[in-house]
Design a protein around this nucleic acid. Structure first.
Lengths: 348, 348
DNA sequence: CAGACCGATTAAAACGTGTCAATGGCCATG
DNA sequence: CATGGCCATTGACACGTTTTAATCGGTCTG
């Protein structure tokens, strides 16, 4: 078609208007409210659009409207399959509404989170789904003051006056894991936790302790806590040393990990020392990522509805964007224990 | 500070200028070329910026400049850990340059790829890193015609006249896996491939066949190919049935999978049938994702420098954006065989 | 002392779009 | 035929920023 060489200047709505013999305003109408324009002119404009290969400029659009058509998704770690699955849910839902998703990665660092939030403000993002690094909601509030509403993900402890939130009941999850282990006869349980700042780590522990108390045990005696710096398999593998410290007699009968990655690391670490689950030790994870079903033995774990979590968060955000009457909502899913091969009854 | 209620209208560069008693142009200069403005006024402006909590509007910015400060990253599958690792490399590098990364997901569908590319054009993205669904480069060329340069990832077969590209030598990778298996004495090898459109699948197979030929074998006899619809563990698990078809005597001695996920699925499928690697069958994967080291037995696989791949792609893109003199470059990394427990010598 | 020059600042014009009040043409009604 | 009303279209402006050329006050030079 166009045989002209070199980078020509981009074609705008005015060029289309000229070509179709109408005013720019009409072209805009064809693009945004086609019903307002007569059929014949509409076709003429559409043809001009095709011939010139016009693509609209979203800078101009959002400058005029004060709002862009992309939403932010701020996650703690792109490489964690849990977040990837959540992202898929968010993305699918946003896509159905014609919104683009900007994926930002805080890598669990408050400074990076702050940078990302500032970026969203500069972009005048339509909204954001945020998994915060810590309990501090000032960043979120600031963003909202700038006109960008946010939905919290995986943070059940935030008041509904602040924002919508979607989470899974971590207390119930911890309890489910605890009950399972107790029913199997385990009395000394080690809880392998990630960084203490993460609410998930703390609440799941409380659930575990509640399960112990419920069965008449003393949480302070029965549950020992070990912290790792990060939530990945490597950290879990390293932690095995500490888990086993104290020798075979004082060794725990079960390990409950706050995350599947950690749990898989533990399985590996055990193997390296000639031990294995569930023979020497029962192991429970959390999340039910793909991986959990694939390792040997299959990992008993607390499943979270990951994809639905992302979808629900985005739907809440959409409701806040579209409905004139909006009340913040606190949505909470129920986790589900999935029993596989890594846990078994205690044999003294 | 500000105790005013309700959503106030956003503060712009003009408000800052008024507050500081200067013209908007000066504020812009303070923000973008501070050296041009006198120290005293600069401080005055900076103070006004702080007091008003001004955040700049990137729509206005990029409307004026014709270019936004975000780059696109189009991947085939967000949930695949290989891509997640690549994304991390891209994001880190872009972040150092102050560029935001818009992550888009084609889910291996040409239609979604097209939509995403259109979106990047509308945003007037500064550039893009693209992992194309198929060999068709028209989308890429169209995007470039719209003024958005793109770097191809994982597509070594594209001419350097079209665009920069970064890839890992798939032929060499296939060959490394092939040689390894041949050295172990395996003579009947099944290649478990993903969709035929993906160049990676085809080229790795060629490498495998080359290794067979090199050792004096006949590729057509020694290598059998099975295709799966997707590149995930589930597909691999399902494919086991077909892999084993023909009974114990005609069963392959080794399976080379185009992807670790597939390989892990195969391991699982074998287990379900009472078989295991490497006792009954050797299994080799590709990518060396985290998972590969964590399953039992550890997966022998062809490692790719994932993070570096992302980083290099972004650096190439940056060079194209910043250097006035730019020549397209074809960067190719070397893969590396990682031997773990899933392969062993053939015992008849 | 006149003129040139310099650095700091400003005024104004653009970028591409959406919206809204105003315009024009047309038909139906009185 | 005159009037009113309706619909399709238009013209002009606003959004927030960057940039260029112009302006201003002041200092140096001949």
């Amino acid at each position: 078609m166009s045989s002209s060489e070199g980078p020509r200047r981009p074609v705008g709505i005015n060029d289309v208007a000229a070509r179709a013999g109408v005013s720019p305003g009409t072209v805009s109408n064809v693009l945004n409210r086609p019903e307002r324009v007569a059929e014949s002119t509409r076709r003429r404009v559409e043809r001009a659009v095709q011939e010139l290969d016009y693509v609209r400029n979203s800078s101009g659009r959002s400058l005029r409207s004060g709002r862009s058509d992309s939403v932010g998704l701020l996650v703690l770690d792109v490489t964690n399959p849990f977040f990837a699955e959540v992202a898929r849910g968010v993305e699918d839902t946003a896509g159905e509404e014609g919104l683009a998703v900007v994926l930002l990665n805080s890598a669990e660092q408050a400074a990076r989170q702050r940078r990302s939030i500032r970026l969203l403000a500069e972009q005048r993002a339509a909204g954001a789904v945020i998994m915060p690094v810590d309990g501090d909601t000032t960043d979120l509030l600031w963003l909202r003051k700038q006109g960008v509403p946010g939905v919290l993900l995986d943070r059940g402890d935030v008041s509904a006056e602040t924002a919508c939130s979607v989470s899974v009941d971590n207390h119930a999850g911890g309890m489910a894991a605890g009950r399972h282990l107790i029913n199997l006869g385990h009395e000394r349980i080690t809880y392998l936790s990630g960084p203490a700042e993460l609410e998930q780590c703390r609440t799941r522990l409380e659930g575990l302790r509640a399960a112990v108390a419920e069965s008449g045990g003393d949480p302070d005696r029965a549950v020992r806590v070990i912290r790792t710096a990060q939530l990945n398999a490597e950290s879990g593998e390293k932690a095995v040393e500490e888990v086993l410290a104290g020798g075979p007699r004082r060794r725990p009968q079960a390990v409950f990990c706050t995350n599947d990655q950690l749990a898989v690391g533990v399985l590996k670490g055990l193997g390296e020392r000639g031990l294995s689950a569930p023979g020497d030790l029962s192991v429970v994870g959390y999340d039910d990522v793909n991986l959990a079903a694939l390792v040997h033995p299959g990992l008993t774990t607390v499943a979270q509805p990951k994809y639905e979590l992302g979808r629900a968060a985005m739907e809440l955000l959409l409701s806040e964007l579209n409905d004139q009457e909006h009340h913040h909502e606190r949505l909470r899913f129920a986790p589900e224990l999935v029993v596989r091969g890594s846990t078994a009854a205690y044999r003294p």
